[in-house]
Computed example of a mutant assay.
Amino acid sequence: MGLFSNKISREEVKPGDHIYSWRTAYVYAHHGIYVGGGKVVHFTRGGGRETETGTFLDKFVVSSSSPNYPQCLVCKDLSSFNGDKVITSCLDCFLAGGNLYLFKYDVSWAAFLAKPRGGTCTLEPSDPPEDVLFRADFHLLLDGWFGDYDVADNNCEDFAIYCKTGLLARCNKAILGTSGQVNSAVSASFAALVLSLSGLPVAGFGVYCYARLAGDVSMRRRRGDVTKVPLERLVALLNQR
């Protein structure tokens, strides 16, 4: 819908797309995989709890759900759990009154740095839609396999990026996950420190851009910081059921 915006219409979204919607005051975006039929598979927390980790990253995020949005009866029932879970929701309840955005893959460095916020695109290419949908369905079938929700290294964006690419940071015990919005927040803190020490806005901006690029899942894959989970492993796990 625009050259510099990831906003799309509902008619444009396709099965296998990584979509997101901004939450309270554009502070944090909730991510998921559109699977068709007006349904979205996403990783979330039950009971309306906020993403509490006890770290400085808490101030950058809010609940992955929107407690004030009136969910439909089906989605309300599916989200009435405690703990962390991959669930399916209708598109309306996933958006929670917000706009629909498409997370972009295989973008150029220039396009990546042109985005003022993290969590909207990546240099990494996406796998075919059928692989993306298989990973999303797998986690609906094997509840709990994706682990505990953690804002720093295992959140809703990490799940969506994993579905699109098969890449996981947890396998290599990385400090942070693949989430662009978390890495952007960390990059901003580094930039603020450099700015306070040097007094040079250009230096702070340069550090921010470099840290964002270095933290992108594509660059981390090249360094070996993330690991690809083969589809064959997921198929084998399903066959063992």
Rank of each mutant, 00 (worst) to 15 (best):
S218D: 13
D158V: 09
A211R: 11
F190Y: 14
Q181H: 15
R170E: 11
D148T: 15
K228Y: 02
L141M: 12
V151H: 02
F146M: 09
M219H: 10
D216K: 05
S187P: 07
V194C: 11
K228W: 01
S179N: 09
G204M: 10
R223W: 11
C171W: 06
S187V: 04
A191W: 00
V182D: 04
L231E: 04
S179W: 04
G147N: 12
E157M: 09
D148W: 10
L213N: 02
S198M: 06
R222T: 10
R170Q: 14
G204T: 09
V217Q: 04
C209I: 00
V229L: 15
A191L: 00
A191K: 06
P128D: 12
V132K: 06
F159Q: 01
V182K: 01
A192C: 05
F146G: 00
V207T: 13
G204N: 07
W145Q: 13
N154V: 08
S218N: 13
C163P: 01
L176S: 11
G144E: 11
G204Q: 07
N155F: 14
L142I: 14
S196Q: 14
S189K: 09
S218I: 05
P230E: 07
A152D: 12
W145S: 14
G144K: 08
F134Q: 00
G224P: 11
Q181I: 08
S189N: 08
Y162A: 01
T178C: 14
V229Q: 13
F159G: 01
E157V: 14
A214P: 02
D137G: 02
Y149K: 13
A203R: 00
D143R: 14
C171V: 02
V186Y: 04
R220W: 03
A185Q: 06
T178Q: 05
G215S: 15
A169D: 03
V202Q: 13
F138E: 04
N155Y: 10
F138H: 03
R212C: 03
F134P: 00
P125K: 09
N155T: 12
P230Q: 06
D150A: 12
A152G: 09
T165V: 07
L213G: 07
